[in-house]
């Protein structure tokens, strides 16, 4: 991961000699101050964001799959990303309704983050309310999917009534991005991911017991309601926080746990949890490095790259092993 981290920082639209990269990273002075600025203010935060985003999404996918005992589960099945999309859509596409100065004010750099966080938080509250009423985890999963379709439908309606410029802005957000996070943003993101991971860590034992099924877990003294609640909260912190800053990044949460399970051939969360975090982080750094298209002036949307590179790998692994380990 350290290697990928440095490769990621070293490559970008402006080519900077490797030696200078290191000297600016470790407090020295680079030959050009602009290089140092690019490294410290742009590439380093982006690399850290990539680690947090990739690792966090992958871990939330892992715990969702265990909780729902469903290999198709991922951080976004609870409708969190749709909620975030709705928040952002309401902000960007609805800004036209308010018009003029108010619209301009609403579109500040922080409002996007707040809108998407608010959106996913509201969906989370709805899911939590449901999960108190419904005991069956499979039902919660389907209800999450339903919430997702409702919010996507609202987003479609909003898109239909908005103008081209607003639509473009929204589409760009939905591409996902790692580059627009400031140091302050990283701090907030870091706290979200850290708390989420700590909750996961405290639930490792119960997660392992859940591998036997709900009834067995209960018979071994696992407090099922508490674990369900903890895991949903952890997922929301991880996925919600990440989506707020980096946009809806698909694929990582669903696929990385599967890749890791295939590679380590275990379901033990003591091994899986750190392994999944690292794999997610590495995958994200790699995808981001590719997305920058080194030595050129283009940067591709990160969301496209994760799926473009990740999906064939998963298909290849599944075809080769012929069996989904779960």
């Amino acid at each position: 991961m350290v290697l990928f981290f440095f490769i990621n920082i070293s490559l970008g639209t402006v080519s900077i000699p490797l030696k200078e990269v290191f000297s600016s990273l470790f407090g020295g002075e680079a030959i050009k101050s602009s290089w140092q600025f690019i490294i410290l203010e742009y590439r380093l935060p982006k690399a850290i964001t990539a680690v947090l985003v990739g690792g966090g999404l992958a871990v939330s996918g892992l715990i969702m799959q265990t909780l729902f005992r469903n290999p198709l589960a991922g951080p976004f099945v609870l409708g969190l990303s749709s909620g975030a999309s709705l928040g952002v859509a309401l902000l960007i596409l609805g800004a036209g309704v308010f018009g003029g100065t108010l619209g301009g004010l609403l579109l500040g750099p922080w409002s996007l983050v707040i809108a998407s966080a608010l959106g996913s938080f509201l969906v989370l509250l709805a899911v939590l309310a449901v999960s108190f009423k419904v005991k069956d985890t499979m039902t919660i999963l389907i209800i999450g999917l339903m919430f997702g379709s409702v919010t996507s439908a609202v987003v479609s309606v909003l898109s239909y009534f908005s103008n081209a410029e607003q639509l473009q802005q929204f589409v760009f957000w939905s591409f996902g991005t790692l580059g627009n996070v400031s140091w302050n943003g990283i701090l907030i993101l870091f706290i979200c991911v850290l708390i989420g991971l700590l909750i996961c860590l405290s639930s490792i034992k119960s997660l392992n017991a859940l591998l036997l099924g709900e009834n067995y877990a209960k018979s071994m003294g696992v407090n099922l309601k508490k674990v369900t609640l903890l895991i949903i909260v952890a997922t929301s912190l991880l996925a919600g926080g990440i989506t707020a800053f980096a946009g809806p990044i698909a694929f990582v949460g669903l696929a990385v746990p599967h890749l890791t399970r295939q590679y380590f051939t275990t379901s033990n969360h003591f091994i899986l949890l750190p392994a999944v975090f690292l794999s997610g982080a590495i995958l994200m750094l790699f995808c981001d490095t590719v997305a920058q298209l080194p030595f050129s002036n283009f940067t591709l949307p990160i969301n496209a790259i994760t799926s473009l590179f990740g999906a064939p790998v998963v298909i290849w692994l599944l075809v080769r092993k012929r069996k989904l380990l779960f």
């Binding site: 017991a209 099924g213 009834n215 067995y216």
Partner: peptide
């Protein structure tokens, strides 16, 4: 129970060890 463990990827030793959970 009659139901099989939901994860078939557990090794036998891991599964038995889970019995020590409490």
């Amino acid at each position: 129970l009659t139901e099989a463990p939901s994860s078939k990827n557990l090794s036998v030793l891991e599964l038995i060890t889970l019995g020590r959970h409490p």
